[in-house]
Amino acid sequence: MSSVRRPEHLAPPEVFYNDDEAKKYSQNSRIIEIQEQMSERAMELLMLPEDKPCYVLDIGCGSGLSGSVLDEQGHFWVGVDISPAMLDVAHDREVEGDLILGDMGEGMPFRAGTFDGAISISALQWLCNADKSSHNPVKRLYKFFSTLNACLSRTARAVFQFYPENSSQVELITSQAMKAGFYGGVVVDYPNSTKAKKFFLVLMTGGNMPLPKALGTEGESSSVQYSKKREQLDSARNSRGKSLKNSRQWILEKKERRRRQGKTTRDDSKYTGRKRSGRF
């Protein structure tokens, strides 16, 4: 069986995310839904101070789907992306945040202590590739993380949803983040589902805090602090694309979280998470 080739192996991001690819981010409802869900989960893991409008950096902001989630939550943001075609889609979507054309691997071009937090959806794995002969992934990752650390406030987090290719790539990424002064680790949601499994790198400035609990782990935690090694990433390549929102468990957990936050939530019933019959 031949495996699907990873986009990062096909072309550099500014070439892969051309007009055709970028168009999908404004037209393909599945892509849009998945990007939004992952952004919402990243925002949960970011744990910004409640009900405060924050200033957030969106790394690999692309077409602004993640930015729209930030808009909805009342935050102000700046996005950086290397693909002009993706930024054009964001521009046409009239997102509230400002857009910057830039390459993560060249460092984040901001003053120290600027942002309350940062999110990044499906972009980080691109940095592990050498797209030019002069590219050195280790150096680019280090430059990225160290300049990111500098532009975050002293008690901030950065949350990256990413698609690691294998466990050594996770090691490469986390070791460079640690070297750049971050604390944190990887949270794996739905670790036992090949389709719904999602990786979130949760980084913190200021000090080490316990990692948030992963979803879909029924008690046992699948958060991995940096120091621990693990070899559970072999099926990472299958992790793309399952619609999490259709699962009953996802809905139950989301409702539970809303209840804990004191928000109004409908009671669970045997119908929760079922497909609706008939049209509305």
Binding site: V80, I82, L87, D88, H91, D98, L99, I100, L101, G102, D103, E106, G107, P109, K132, S134, K139, Y142, K143, S146, T147, N149, A150, K179, A180
Partner: peptide, 23 residues
């Protein structure tokens, strides 16, 4: 252009940082 600043730089323009750098 179109409200988007282009902060991309050429490789020979970037600042090589090393571990002891005070970032």
């Amino acid at each position: 252009t179109r409200g988007i600043p282009n902060m991309l730089v050429n490789e020979n323009e970037v600042n090589e940082i090393n571990d002891s750098n005070g970032y």
